[in-house]
Design a protein around this nucleic acid. Sequence first.
DNA 1: ACTCCCTTGTTGCAATTGCAACAGATTTTT
DNA 2: AAAAATCTGTTGCAATTGCAACAAGGGAGT
Lengths: 219, 219
Amino acid sequence: MLPEHNILFKNINTEDCKRMITCFNADIRRYKSGSCIANYDEYNDKIGIVLSGRAVMVRYDINGVRTIIESLEEQSIFGAFFTFNISKRNTIEIVSETDCEIMFVRRSEITKRCEKACQCHSKVVENLLALMSEKTISLSERIEVLSQRSIEDKLISCLEIIEDKTPDGKTPQIPFSTTALSDYLCVNRSALQREISKLKNAGVLTISKRKFKFLRPKD
Amino acid sequence: MLPEHNILFKNINTEDCKRMITCFNADIRRYKSGSCIANYDEYNDKIGIVLSGRAVMVRYDINGVRTIIESLEEQSIFGAFFTFNISKRNTIEIVSETDCEIMFVRRSEITKRCEKACQCHSKVVENLLALMSEKTISLSERIEVLSQRSIEDKLISCLEIIEDKTPDGKTPQIPFSTTALSDYLCVNRSALQREISKLKNAGVLTISKRKFKFLRPKD
DNA sequence: ACTCCCTTGTTGCAATTGCAACAGATTTTT
DNA sequence: AAAAATCTGTTGCAATTGCAACAAGGGAGT
């Protein structure tokens, strides 16, 4: 994907875009699926934007337990700046799930007053605001899911959010394998499997591969 | 607190501030402790900023179980725009914990291009960006806590984050009662109490009222 | 087609957590 | 100051969840 098609440069003409990408010292890199795109063992103010592909932010605790902190779809932003303090007990990494193109920009480059006073600069800041707004929504959804008290409720809450985002006519699809989903819901895999089977047997929903469908009339 | 002292208007002179507050149609309201400041049963694009006092974003599910979604300290922002889709099964409210002053601004007023092209406008957008950045950090911390697999780990993670934020020399303090803390950690109160007692007996930490201290040498 | 590796699905058992109930402490209201 | 309401701390028991182990399924690569 061309960087100028990124939401960050929305409503800015291609000419200005190219100029700004240089002006920002933007760095565009490609990663194979399964690569480590970034890790947060030290502070830096780089902002990453997923131009194409999909990545996840993961944490491994001292026992090696994996937690998927966030799923980063196309157009998502990430960076130490948007995340909690780096703890000594955890390792946080951004890992590509598919082949990815990532654009890196220093936050300070974006927020600093541009000497050249280019108009599009403030436009970029506004666009960044919109991206961040989306991020807070995505994080809030995550909290919504994790704050459920039982595995069943976590699962249903998660699936409902996916369902809500699915365009009419399309079949809702989980962006993870069941194993990864358990890391995302922060529960034991086999306990999650048990709940899935229970819901299937109870006729609440159907799940086949990653596609699912609630059987009750949507209220 | 004077609204012009709010972070949103940082680096903007008092004169311009007053002008902008009018320009934005900013609405400043006072609330007694325990009042409902906002509820998200319908969409609106109002942004709320806590000028003084403290509030919480809470959810009550159909069973009346309370979850404290966020603790909103002074200078925090909130709004439906930053939150997940409103579900029919949940009620989300902002409730004041102390007496509060809240400033409401419509998001569209801030992001729209100002006809008068006032310079400070883009400064406000940048400030909003900083506020949102803090918000994403605060939400990420919340996820960090909730993603822990046991009550003990949730508690420790939560306390460590509070400890990290406490200025040197001051005693770290939980912003909640134990009962409210259990709603924040999304666990049963007496189970939480049990874990607190266990940690105290094991000599890991001391807790008296809301003040606490880890006894192990900080690593 | 075969191997290797990872995922799915299941189960018994152990550990953790939730629930309910209660007594005492603390805070708020009258 | 008394009464009411809320919060703290504890415990036995029930329910949920985690753990470990295993069999079976599916995909990628040779």
